[in-house]
Design a protein around this nucleic acid. Structure first.
Lengths: 213, 213, 213, 213
DNA sequence: CATGAATGAGACTTCATTCAT
DNA sequence: CATGAATGAAGTCTCATTCAT
């Protein structure tokens, strides 16, 4: 009973924290860090401003936790795919396909991640960069390794795997961002097959010469 | 003489405005819109804050003009290439090559353009979106048209030209951004050929099947 | 049994209150009224903040009670000495000596009393001033009376007893404060005899001239 | 003319700063650091809150400058007296007398100095402590040196000069504070002669025994 | 009585903007 | 046009206090 009571309080507290995180994510992803005030977050989450500070020591801490959450979730989704024991071909197709899921289920997260990750975090919370960057680098490294492996097994043409990974990542991020920003003219449905095609045609090993000019 | 005097005054005024724009560009590109104060801009340009308001009605207007300047310069550089009367193949190679120039000569501009263009302008100055977006769309449309033309002339395989354009644009922007952010590990020199290769291999028309899964 | 139960409860309640008072005294004396939060007091006393409000209606009330406690204890220590039936000389020596005890046993009290007594109480709890001030005045009056009595009995030279009392009090308080603040360079051991000497030399009746310039 | 114009602006700015300092001194001396808000200071000085920050980077900086000003003024008043080439006797009498001037001309300063000097500065601006403490120590040292010199020249009885200096300082400060706090019952006029008497009687060298117990 | 999450008034501070000179 | 002191709205954050459990 005591356990239940404590548990209920703890559960409630956790729920409140999640409500704050959810409200903040929505606002930050829509308007960016500097254009959202703590009062605004408090209002949409139906708490008092002071309450926010019972969960997060500062606005920047709240933002940081949000960014970390997003990055971690994406990492948890993509890493297993790249680390699985399938052919490189299959891994890449699933990697690309996974972006469809991320997009459809975590639109705010994407918007936050793609919107502020590059510039803002550096200025606002330099130390935040560490883990965020770590995660980005991890994904790119794995992606690069998979491509390199394909090359070494003679399945892909010779290429700079790191650059191809960066290019693939860029295409996917850009597609996701465009689809969020202009949903009526750009869609993941159209874009993903095209990216897939471009990647695999670009990497395909064929008998002729390499990409001569 | 009055004409001369006015002319000199006008020239001086123009010079002052350009100094302000230059200082603001540097600061905004380094720190982002919200992390630069008008006092800061005034200090580096050696004017008083009030003087800035003789040239720009607001901080946002100054920022908007900056963004427009950048976008226009890029447009002026890229559009002639895409509109020239060369083969599609040659146009694309020159289009890609042009990014090298943009990067090496206008680093601040790139940083500003790629950093804030997506999110911030919407919030800060919604009406700014209009022309900026117009320019982006124009470039993408032209790029798309060139690709589509190549397809219709049988030089490229069938593809969704708009998506390929978006993908190419994304790769180039991402490469530029990475090269600015991590200059010691990512360089345009390495990246551009790889992008070129990927694009042309992806578009190459060959006798065999299309990119079947 | 009910009586016993209530009594136990009451004793417990009293004990809790004393714990709170003790913790608050320590914190207030170290950091001053405004630099101690109720949460801090709650933490060191291992209660919840709400619990503090079951014993004291406000932070100021807690502070006031503390001040009164200190003042009353000091009064209870000093008054019997001044009211005893000894010679004025002996009374004053014991009065001075008593400050050694106060110092060694109630350092926190001293720090609180000397630190905030003058300014803060006026602002925080004007009505607190009443009894605190009453206590100060009581001590000074009795001290003054003792000196005046000594003068009237021809044991001390003619003087303004009130001023001498004030001076003695000032010297003792200042010594105590200095001994608390710079314990390595100022000690009660050194200071008390010096004060005693100065007082009695100053008051000594001798045949020669008075303190003419 | 340009000189005049600049000079006028500078003079005006200086005047404004002095107005702020004066208003802040009055408020701080009456209510203490924590019980005065920047808005309050802005209101009494008839400026906007932001204006205060054009003169002082923070509330604490404003307070610190105030404290330093007071301390320095008092130092500038007292030090020349103690450093003059008169007899120790004469120096001490003038030192005591100087407090009458300090009192009559700088009542707020006294209240600020005596009220907050002990506790607050430590908490608020530890580095402020340095110069303030330096000043206190300087005065006490010089005072102590004068007394010691008197002892060595056989003009005063043997005594612990440091303790006597502390005692004299305590009496003077306490008198000043009391005269400020209870002006109707305590006055410098009454008190200063009494302190002088006590000091010189306490220090007087006479043929008889020393202060035997 | 004990708890501690929630509250919200109020404090400090910033900075885009104005305007008298 | 240039200046920069003054402005004050708005933002972040603190903390004494309340109240449902």
């Amino acid at each position: 009973m005591t356990t239940d009571s404590l548990s209920r309080k703890e559960r409630e507290r956790l729920r409140h924290k999640e409500e704050i995180v959810a409200g903040a994510l929505k606002l930050f992803s829509e308007k960016g860090f500097h254009n959202v005030s703590m009062l605004e977050i408090a209002t949409v989450t139906e708490f008092a401003t002071g309450t926010l500070y019972n969960f997060f020591p500062s606005k920047e801490a709240l933002y940081s936790e949000l960014m970390l959450n997003c990055s971690r979730k994406i990492l948890a989704l993509l890493l297993p795919i790249l680390d699985s024991s399938e052919t490189e071909d299959r891994k890449l197709r699933r990697f690309i396909e996974a972006h469809r899921t991320i997009f459809t289920e975590h639109m705010d997260m994407i918007r936050l991640y793609l919107g502020d990750v590059n510039r803002l975090s550096m200025v606002i919370a330099p130390q935040l960069e560490e883990e965020i960057e770590q995660i980005r680098v991890t994904i790119l490294d794995r992606l690069s390794a998979v491509i390199q492996s394909g090359v070494e097994h003679g399945r892909f043409r010779a290429c700079n795997a790191g650059m191809v990974a960066l290019a693939l990542s860029a295409m996917l991020e850009s597609l996701a961002f465009s689809a969020v920003t202009y949903p009526q003219s750009i869609s993941m449905e159209q874009g993903l097959p095209e990216i897939e095609a471009m990647l695999f045609d670009g990497l395909r090993q064929w008998e002729g010469t390499s990409h001569a000019q």
